[in-house]
Simulated scan of single mutants.
Amino acid sequence: MAFTICYAGFRSGFFTIDHIHTVKQLIEKCHEYNRPLAVTFIDYEKVFDSIEHWAVFHALYHYDLDSLVENFNDLQRTLQQLYDACMWVGLKMNMSKTKVMANIYNVTNPSATVGSEMLEIVDLKTRLYNQCVLPTMTWTLTQEAVYRMRVAQRTMERVMLGIKLIDRVTNDQIRSRTKVKDVGNRITKLNWS
């Protein structure tokens, strides 16, 4: 069976870095044109122990799966087709590690179910904020400094969502959409102030 150039894994002369660059460009263009985007990261259970790679390629080629879809309904349909194709060759998705990363231009409460399990939808900006920015904002602080940190945090959340002060969106509404952890509560919880 001849494979197209889109299959880079386990092939001489093909590199996954090219595909990572393509995904990065896709993310940038969707952001530039305010288009919805959901990227799915799929993990398989014991993939190297349980199956021949040619069988996976054959299943993907046989089912002719879409790699780009327009909405969460199409995403769910495509993921279900991929799940069925993989089950056909004896490959099982690890649902606890399979994630969907969505941008802010998607629907309010996106969801995707594969088989009988709901996939976790991850917002990249929130995850980066909670893991990279928030830890650097916590040290011994006065009440005034904690207040200033909260103001800075709210400003960052507005930037994450593309909301301006003139839009008159409350901080509670913004926090419910970003789901970031409050810096003041984190400082109090860690007793660093």
Rank of each mutant, 00 (worst) to 15 (best):
T16K: 02
E117M: 12
V69N: 00
V180R: 00
N106G: 11
G9E: 11
L75Y: 04
T22H: 11
V122S: 00
L124M: 15
L60G: 01
L75W: 08
T170F: 11
F3G: 04
R177D: 06
L124I: 11
V47W: 08
H62M: 11
M118I: 15
N71E: 05
F10W: 06
E117S: 14
I166D: 07
I187Q: 01
I166C: 06
G90H: 05
V133Y: 06
K125D: 11
T140A: 03
E157Y: 01
S193N: 15
S193V: 12
W88R: 06
T140P: 05
T78R: 01
V159K: 07
H21G: 04
W54E: 14
N109Y: 15
C30K: 07
N103I: 14
T142M: 01
P135E: 07
C132G: 04
C86L: 15
L134A: 10
L65W: 04
I174A: 02
W139N: 02
S176H: 09
N109C: 09
D64L: 09
E70K: 01
W54Y: 07
R11I: 04
K24N: 08
E32T: 09
M156H: 03
T140K: 06
P135N: 04
Y33M: 02
Y63L: 05
N94I: 11
L26V: 11
V56Y: 04
M149H: 06
M156D: 05
R168S: 14
K29Q: 11
M149Q: 08
L79I: 05
G162E: 09
V169G: 02
T78D: 10
N71P: 02
V133D: 01
L128H: 02
R175E: 10
T40W: 04
R168E: 15
V159M: 05
Y105D: 07
V114P: 01
Q25E: 09
Y105H: 15
I51F: 13
M87N: 13
F14C: 03
L37Y: 07
I174P: 09
R175M: 12
Y105V: 06
N34G: 02
E52P: 00
L128Q: 03
V69A: 03
K189C: 07
M137S: 03
Y61A: 14
Q131M: 14
N106D: 11
M137C: 05
L141T: 14
N171Q: 08
Q80S: 09
S176N: 13
K179F: 12
D84I: 05
W139H: 04
M101N: 00
V180D: 10
T126V: 03
Q80P: 00
